[in-house]
Nucleic acid binder design. Structure first.
Lengths: 159, 159
DNA sequence: TATTGTTATACTCTATAACTATA
DNA sequence: TATAGTTATAGAGTATAACAATA
């Protein structure tokens, strides 16, 4: 370990950090950094650039709610319906999602996963589970429950 | 209230909700929703589309670390340096940030706020404080401490 | 050789408004 | 009139790679 003998730089501050000032105590700032870090770690785990967390969430929601309409899905994922159109176009073209017409209301679509979509989702789900286990380990079992509870309060309270 | 007499639709499920399935327990999914909700609420509070949370964070970090370089700032905000270039170009053009050459290393810039930048930041800071108070109320005083601690673990653990 | 910052480029995500087709 | 979804369009945000200046 040759690095062990490297002389430390003289510093006024103990570490070469940036002072956060008021940001230090802002929940919003930390939410952004944590979400960003989580996003990156998940994307890196999956590898495929075209299967990012947002696509994973869409597919998971369709799998859990077969026949869901695009509008319902857009509400659940907090996105405008036009945003969903683009994402679903991509998933349909790639043979992962099926847009079936809903017979009872011919304005809307009934979304479903294809067989291939279910396979891909299963693979993503193992990555997501592993990713979430990594997060669990960082915060501990009690921390996970507390964190989810606190995040849900924020999500529900800022409607 | 004429709606009071509207007959309820027969539903198998008690409310027209979307089932989250495994997402229900994923930290990453809730981080995204919470960050999104917080982002929106802050942006709405500020009004100005060109002063979003990311710009606010940049300005706050410069104010707290006058003379900071772009690279140091990019690390603190977890963005590539090329991303910072664009954002700083905008802030400089608008007269909020000053790029001064650092005499000791002429490759880098020493960033500072202009007088106008300090004024704008002060205004943003009051919005941010109000926004954070709103979040505080949602999670409670003990919840805030717990939440910050948990988020820091995630941020620090996913390097 | 390595680092700071810029530029060129491209891709994703997002939303608004106007549109269509149905209801 | 109202709703589901599409399209056209635009704007942020992000990153990679190649580059010039400096160390």
């Amino acid at each position: 370990m040759p690095k062990a003998t490297r002389p430390r730089k003289d510093r006024v501050t103990p570490v070469p950090v940036v002072r956060l000032g008021p940001l230090e105590d802002f929940i919003g700032f930390h939410l952004r950094l944590a979400q960003e870090a989580s996003f990156r770690a998940f994307a890196q785990r999956v590898g495929d650039r075209r299967l990012r967390p947002s696509r994973f969430a869409i597919m998971a929601l369709i799998a859990e709610n077969p026949g869901i309409t695009q509008t319902a899905l857009s509400r659940a994922s907090a996105r405008d319906k036009s945003t969903l159109t683009t994402a679903l176009d991509d998933l349909v073209v790639r043979g992962l999602v099926l847009r079936g017409r809903a017979p009872e209301d011919r304005r809307s679509y009934a979304l479903m996963l294809t067989a291939r979509g279910r396979q891909v989702l299963a693979r993503l789900m193992t990555h997501a589970a592993a990713h979430d286990r990594q997060l669990d380990e960082l915060v501990g079992p009690a921390g996970k429950l507390a964190l989810l509870r606190l995040l849900r309060r924020i999500i529900g309270g800022l409607d």
